[in-house]
Structures are given as C-alpha cells and as structure tokens.
C-alpha cells in the first residue's frame, strides 16, 4: 500500500505481472493513503471546528447546547472580564518567558556546539531531563520549592516556571540549526580575514536566526497553552487555560471560544503567510536560476 513506487519498479524489472491486474491494484493502492490522510485531518480538526462554531452560540451561562447564532460574543469579548484578564496574563507570561528562555537557550546551544568543556554529558543530561519529566512532577517540584522558601505564588512564579521548561526546547531547536551549518562556512569566514567576533556576527548568527525565531515561537506556544505546571504555581493568578479548567465544571462562556478561535486563526494566518512567502521566494529563485 505504501510502497507504490518501489513495487512498480520491482514488477517492471523482475517479474512483469499481467498489466491489467497491476493497473487495478495500483489504482486502489494509490488512493488508500490520500483518503486516509484526508480522514485523519478531518478527525484532527473536528474539535477546532466545534470550538469555532460554538463561539457564535447565543449561550447564556454554559456553552453546551446550541441556542442560536450571534456575533455578540465576538463583539463584546470583554464582557466576561475574567476571560480577558486571564488572556492578558497569558500574553504577559508567554512573552516574558519566551524572551528569557530564548536568550538562555540560544547561549547554551551555541556553547554546546562550538566549544568543548568538561561536564559536557552532565550538562546534556540536565537539559534533557526537563523534557523527559512529566509536567505534574515539574509543577509539583517547583511548588514544593516555593512552599519551602515561602515565596508567594503569582505571575512571577508562573514566568519562572515557564522559562524553565522552555529553555530545553530552545536548546534543542537552535542546536539542530547549529549542527546543520556547514562548518566550512565559518572556516571560509576566518579564511577571508574575519576575526572570531566578526565571523560570529556576520556569518554564524544570521544563519542561526531562523532557528532562533522558530525556538521563540515554540516557546511562546508552549507557554501560552500550558496548564499543568501553571496550575501548581499560579496561586490566585489566572491564565487562559487555568480559567477554562476552573470553569469547566460549571460551563465555559462562549467568550473563551471567541478568544481561542481568534488566537487559532491568528496563528494559522501567520504560519500560512510564512509558508506562502517562502514558496514565492522559492519560485522566484527557481525562475531566475
């Protein structure tokens, strides 16, 4: 089913089967994967569509039963002031934690690839462990530390927690980019009279930039959607996911669907714009070249 091309070659080369039979089997096999993929995508998108549709529900308190179409919730999101406050907190936390984690993680990634030092494997382990640790453990651990130290939980503790779990992801993302760099490029920079400093800022850094941006976007997405770790370290501060968790029992207001849908479409538009601009660039390259 999956090895269409391989099989066609083998048939042609080794034991030519009657063409009609081969054609028939090929015809079926050819469509199995695309159809499967289409169904899989529909499955993946169902809850998103549901959330989007119910952002137009003229709900009163809980947003479970369809009560009619309205734009009200989109126009007056902040009527549910708690949703807006929670959303604002999530933005502040996401942006702050992203900046901190991207700086810390990029520095580590560069050090890991470009320099050699002792305790290298210990450091790799320290970077790997946060990703291999379940979020409950990370959350409970930090909460236990804050409890022991008598730190008041709030926005600050959430930012600390988010920065912590984002650093490792930044390191991995940037490191991947660093290791795909052709070392000959930096050698060429040195060969062409660039001092180590100049080579870094004029050759290495610009080439790393896409990786750094990707790492920052990943950090923001992780932070924005995090609930488990936040829940342990938020105290009374609300974030968007925490708000949903707390209201889940009594029903989510449609305003939450509005914000989630808006964020979704914003993200999708950003991603598509990036895709299309790179496709256009590729096409232009192809045309000129």
């Amino acid at each position: 089913m999956t090895l269409q091309e391989g099989r066609v070659v083998s048939r042609a080369v080794t034991r030519p089967a009657p063409p009609s039979r081969r054609g028939a089997r090929l015809g079926v096999g050819k469509w199995v994967l695309p159809i499967y993929a289409a169904i899989a995508f529909v499955f993946l998108l169902i809850p998103i569509a549901y959330t989007f549709v119910f952002s137009f529900n003229d709900s009163v308190k809980s947003n479970i039963v369809w009560r009619g179409f309205t734009f009200d919730k989109w126009l007056n999101v902040c009527d549910q002031i708690d949703v807006c406050v929670a959303f604002g907190n999530s933005l502040i936390i996401g942006i702050t934690a992203t900046i901190a984690a991207t700086i810390l993680g990029t520095m580590i990634a560069i050090a890991l690839v470009r320099y050699r030092f002792r305790f290298r494997s210990a450091i790799s382990l320290l970077l790997f462990l946060p990703m291999a640790t379940p979020e409950v453990v990370l959350g409970a651990g930090l909460a236990a530390e804050f409890l022991g130290a008598g730190v008041q939980k709030g926005l600050g503790t959430i930012i600390i927690a988010h920065t912590m779990f984002c650093v490792s992801f930044v390191v991995v993302t940037v490191k991947a980019r660093v290791s795909t760099l052709d070392p000959a490029l930096e050698e060429a920079g040195r060969d062409l009279y660039g001092s180590p400093n100049q080579v870094f800022w004029r050759v290495t850094f610009p080439l790393l930039l896409p990786g750094i941006i990707a790492a920052a976007l990943l950090s923001f997405a992780l932070s924005f959607d995090d609930f488990i770790i936040t829940n342990f370290n938020a105290g009374t501060t609300s974030t968007f996911p925490k708000y949903i968790y707390i209201s889940a029992a009594r029903g989510i207001p449609a305003e939450a669907n509005v914000i989630a849908s808006a964020v979704f479409f914003l993200a999708i538009i950003l991603v598509l714009a990036a895709q299309i601009s790179s496709a256009v660039k590729r096409k232009r390259l192809a045309k000129v070249g």
């Binding site: 052709d182 000959a184 050698e187 060429a188 920079g189 040195r190 060969d191 062409l192 660039g194 080439l207």
Partner: peptide, 16 residues
C-alpha cells in the same frame, strides 16, 4: 587563518 595572506576555494565552495 584570518591573519594569513592565504585564501581557499573550498571543496563545497562554502558560499555564504
């Protein structure tokens, strides 16, 4: 390397 009056044409060209 950057102090030597020597330049290299790399095997992979290494164009930036």
């Amino acid at each position: 390397p950057y102090q030597r009056q020597v330049n290299t044409v790399f095997q992979s060209y290494a164009l930036f």
